[in-house]
Design a protein around this nucleic acid. Structure first.
Lengths: 138, 138
DNA sequence: ATCGGTTACGCTATCCGTAATAATA
DNA sequence: TATTATTACGGATAGCGTAACCGAT
């Protein structure tokens, strides 16, 4: 099965024009990188890179694969960042300032809906509720 | 690091609406699937799926991630197929029908350029050359 | 002789499957 | 009780790093 890491390594080698530089860019050793490229080539059924004495060039197969590899990596990155952005929206603290007498009635109801909410603060007038789950104001 | 497989599993669970059905669709066991989803959620920093008693629903985070996950999977698939298509173009047999007297002069020249070519056939009028390397007609 | 890539090999970590556990209708 | 997801754990696989090797300048 072709993995994201293999595509990432391929792109790095092409961008750097060298296994050695790509390896140090990726913080792995040259053999590890070489092995992954090898695995990708085997799962694809042919050579993707032409190993020249002084540089590395794409074969036609590699040239056909590269843009899709870049796209896959970009999408995977977007998947992570999109999720994390939502996470920041939702996991941010929702600070509520209320009169203590009012919060006595409201907070228990919120706690029932939000899952794992934690209420901090004191009678002195400020409480905060962290909402790690997907609760929205009704 | 987020892997293609994790994204694939997420998409399967959403499409099937159930861990169980997704697991059998993917030919893995339920625990394996559960663990991968868990890993994805941890690397993302929050829940992606809401486990309901009778079904599974996306959280806002999951909803934000899903289209990018689909896109990444599609691109990875395209990367493989694009490369394999080129492979078939290049590794497919190139059949040449010539007069034997003509082929005597031409074939040796082709062999010099193509790398590992194999010539089959006989004097009776048909020869074929397999070209596993990236040779193109001049 | 040096530089760049590959192969060999031992170790660690990851992943999967079986079995047991928990929770909900 | 039946269904569905999670946790625990043993075994297989994959990935990495060190070291040795090859080919070319």
């Amino acid at each position: 099965m072709t993995t994201l890491r293999q595509l990432e390594y391929l792109v790095a080698v092409v961008d750097e024009g060298s296994f050695t530089r790509a390896a140090e860019l990726l913080h792995v050793t040259q053999p590890a990188l070489s092995h992954q490229i090898r695995a990708l080539e085997q799962s694809t059924g042919g050579f993707l890179l032409e190993r020249l004495p002084r540089s590395v060039r794409l074969t036609p197969m590699g040239r056909a694969m590269l843009p899709h590899a870049r796209a896959a990596l970009a999408d995977a990155g977007r998947a992570r960042t999109a999720a994390r952005q939502v996470a920041h929206l939702e996991q941010g603290e929702l600070r509520l300032a209320t009169l203590y007498s009012v919060s006595l009635g409201v907070l228990p109801q919120l706690s029932k809906r939000g899952g794992r909410n934690t209420a901090t603060g004191s009678r002195s007038g400020c409480s905060s509720i962290a909402t790690p789950t997907s609760w929205r104001p009704p």
